[in-house]
Amino acid sequence: MSDGQDPMNAEGMAHTPPEGGVDTSHGPILYLENVSVSFDGFKALNELTLYVDDGELRCIIGPNGAGKTTMMDVITGKTRPDAGTVFFGQTLDLARLSEHEIASAGIWRKFQKPTIFLAHTVFENLELAMQADKGVWASLRACLSAEQRDRIDEVLALIGLIGQRGLRAQSLSHGQKQWLEIGMLLMQNPRLLLVDEPVAGMTHQEMDRTAELLTSLAGRHSVVVVEHDMDFVRSIARKVTVLHEGSVLAEGSMDQVQSDPRVIEVYLGA
């Protein structure tokens, strides 16, 4: 709680998903339409409209204060929009759901600072994050089934930490910690994964691995990545959205975006 990132301040922990799955029959899994958020009159988000397709890997860039983090706060229910609509699929109005309900609907977020359980092994971290009965009594009697082990192994392979499975999380490198945290989110089988500045502080090698990891997630999960590092965003080479002063300035491939004169003016050209 000390890190000030506790998004779970609601009392109840009902992890029952809202009735019905996520309806993505029209393509997008996430709809942000004319969303505005202001803090003391300052518009952090200004009529933001943004769609993310199901299975898409989307990069969001933008100068400091453009509203990227605020946008994630709105999606996860941490901040409520003053105006506009936020929908998950066709039917789930995120503005009406609690943070818990949003998480159980399948939207999970990775914060900048990795918060993993340092005294536990990599394997145990994933075990703890696994979808299961989380009651006290169930935990006392819990015993991993073969399927659950397979699922953990699968995620271990995905995040490239098979060799480190028995290692305590505290002995991992910075990059490995970030991957482990992504792995913990994957154990929740998220539909939409929000990742805020994943490569800050990483070595180049780790950045490449992270790009690979995020790319491999696309398809099975929808992923939205906020990142400042241009080389990293280019290496992912997907659709890029540029935010500026709370709204979308440009959208397209990295090359398109970079040659857009407005983008050059406010951001890249600086």
């Binding site: 998480a103 340092l118 006290v136 006392l140």
Partner: peptide
């Protein structure tokens, strides 16, 4: 047991344990 691992997780990162669905106060 897994209960023990949850309890240590609560000790080390309480909000995180709560976030992934454990009712920390019950534990």
């Amino acid at each position: 047991s897994k209960l023990g691992r949850v309890v240590v997780a609560v000790r080390d990162a309480e909000s995180r344990a709560r976030f992934i669905g454990y009712r920390v106060e019950h534990y």
